[in-house]
Simulated scan of single mutants.
Amino acid sequence: MAVLILGATGATGQLVVKDLLSSNQSVIALVRSPNLPPHPNLEQIQGTVLTLSEAKLIKILARVECIASCLGHNLTFKGIYGQPRMLVRDSIMQICQLERLIRKTLTRRKPLRIILMSSSGSQNLDLAEPISKSQKMALAIIRCLVPPHLDNERAANYLRCEIKNDYQLKWIIVRPDTLINEKDISNYALHASPERSAIFDPGTTSRINVANFMARLTREDYLFDYWEGKMPVIYNCQTQESLDLEERF
């Protein structure tokens, strides 16, 4: 079955689509305008989770077993402060609610998998990740002044809390640090929690590495099973000593 990509025309979303297609996977991409390069395994559907009708979304969801969300807010005044303020959270909620409707008429062979791109500034409250008082204060200010950060937190907390006991929905929240552009995939490290302060000592993560990890989660069952229900933090790394965690399997 196909992989559904949300935010497929964004800087990271396009790279996820490219990685999936290079592995001969079928992709359904929700796009504001169908301007991704054509490919026989790519179906572009114009619209978003919040603009398409429920009937159309249900038909799309019935065709997929995995969703990778790279949704984010445009870095403009309207994109940051305009509607929908909770774009990511509301999209994930709609997906989960419609999935429950689908189960009443469709028996899935596997639970629906959701892979959500977030950020290292979004805490995993299940682990009570320690942060300094200064970072707590900075995050409190950011929540008030930068709605996209609060959106990321609420989307993550929805998956953590609202579908915690729903065994037909499985999720992973991928947390990159400061995103940068690189042409090629490089070594990257995965950690259960941040290794450095996202505010005062941020690391870097190339978008192509995030895309590679997310794409691998859609096709490598052992990797998904390891991180299922967790919020891995991904950093670029320079040394062989800290290669990505899945190499330890």
Score class of each variant (00 low, 15 high):
H191R: 15
K170Q: 13
S26A: 15
Q14L: 12
V17F: 12
L106P: 05
F77R: 09
Q238F: 13
Q135W: 06
D151E: 02
L50H: 05
Q14E: 13
C237V: 13
A215C: 02
V3P: 00
E246D: 04
A62M: 15
L159D: 10
I114Q: 00
K183Y: 12
A62L: 12
R32Y: 04
A2Y: 06
S206N: 01
A62G: 14
L21N: 02
I28Q: 12
G203K: 12
N209Q: 06
D201S: 15
V27R: 03
I163Q: 08
F200Y: 15
I172P: 00
I163S: 03
S53P: 06
N209K: 00
K230I: 09
Y158C: 08
R63W: 11
D225E: 14
Q135Y: 08
V27T: 04
H39L: 01
N165V: 09
E246M: 04
R219W: 08
D225V: 10
T239S: 11
A189G: 10
A192E: 08
E162D: 13
D201W: 14
D90W: 06
Y222V: 15
I173E: 05
G13L: 07
T48Y: 09
D19C: 02
Q123Y: 08
E54S: 08
S134Y: 10
K136V: 07
S53T: 09
G121D: 00
I80A: 01
L36H: 06
I102K: 13
G82F: 15
A156N: 04
H149A: 05
G10R: 00
C66G: 00
G72S: 05
R113Y: 02
L4S: 07
P148F: 03
E129V: 07
N124Y: 02
V49M: 09
P34D: 03
I185Y: 01
A155F: 11
L169D: 01
K164W: 05
R85W: 01
Q46M: 09
L145Q: 09
N24E: 08
R196G: 05
A155H: 10
I172E: 07
K56M: 06
R85M: 08
M214V: 05
V31G: 05
I102H: 07
T51A: 12
P37E: 02
N157C: 08
E228V: 10
D19W: 11
A156T: 15
L15E: 07
L190I: 11
P84E: 03
Q97L: 04
L52S: 09
